[in-house]
Amino acid sequence: MTAKSFNFGRLVVYGVLLVAAFFFLVPMYVMIVTSLKDATQIRTGNLLSLPAGLNVESWSLAWSSACTGVDCRGLKPYFWNSVSMAVPAVLISTAWGAVNGYVLSMWKFRGSEVLFGFLLFGVFMPFQVVLLPMSQILGYLGISSSIAGLILVHSLAGLAGTTLFFRNYYTAVPRELVNAARIDGAGFWRIFWRIVLPMSTPIMMVTLIWQFTNIWNDFLFGVAFSGADSKPITVGLNNMANTTSSVKNYNVDMAAAIIAGLPTMLVYILAGQYFVKGLTAGAVKG
């Protein structure tokens, strides 16, 4: 391959990436500049024009006083509902998936492969089919329309995916380490805590980021299983955007959308490199 053709190929790749980045970043740009404009600039200005000044009033309204239906407390209570729901659900589903993956890869028993196959149905099964039975279970447990109910639902819904991640990652761990620990008298939990878990940092980061993104951005379970005081931020954002008024405050809606998506954006910005490394490490053997 000549240097000329190589440079041309690289140029094409960069051009495609720039076009893709443009289509992904323009909506974000429009959201940010619109959130910083006042109502007059939005009515008279161009969609892509820069704001005349840094107007952060819309951010304050979106956070603390914008109306979502008849509730005019902004996104603040919904944000903290999502935090109270997402953090425990992410930790529970990740820890549970780590133990499942450890068992299914290193402590296989008769029928374990069949069990794993059935568990994989949870990765591909549409969540809409579990809404009715899950609502009945939550009612039976007495935790329907509550944060605790949402934590349980998300922990169970994410279990198939987290188990798959850890099981595939642990199949690449040398069996000699586990066998040597067994010979030395180490049991199930000691091997897990002392040998397996310290080696699990890459896939642990992948699972934590994956689960946090899915749970934080979920709308289906939030709207189906939450009550008046337990709605997550996605439901609050939807209610705010659909609240009718004499004048539509696009700047407030845009600020609210950015606030709702900010936690997941920060997670990927701060820990995105660990996500890529973990996926690569877990792709060696499956």
Rank of each mutant, 00 (worst) to 15 (best):
A3I: 09
S5I: 15
F8D: 13
V13F: 13
V13I: 14
V13Y: 09
G15I: 02
L17G: 07
F24S: 11
P27N: 06
V30L: 03
V30P: 02
V30M: 00
T34K: 02
K37W: 01
K37C: 01
T44V: 12
L48W: 06
G53F: 14
V56S: 11
E57W: 11
A62W: 05
W63F: 11
A66F: 07
D71F: 11
R73Y: 12
F79C: 04
P88V: 06
I92P: 04
V103G: 07
M106T: 08
W107M: 05
K108S: 14
K108Y: 09
G111W: 11
G117K: 09
L119V: 01
V123L: 15
V123R: 00
V123E: 05
F124G: 08
V129E: 02
I137S: 01
I137Y: 10
I143D: 06
A160V: 04
T162M: 13
P174W: 07
L177Q: 10
N179Y: 14
A180R: 09
I183H: 11
G187A: 02
F188S: 04
W189E: 02
P198M: 05
S200A: 15
I203P: 03
I203L: 05
V206Q: 01
I215C: 02
P232M: 00
A241S: 11
T243F: 08
T244M: 13
Y250A: 13
N251V: 12
A255S: 08
T264L: 07
L266S: 02
V267P: 02
Y268F: 15
G272I: 00
Q273K: 15
F275M: 05
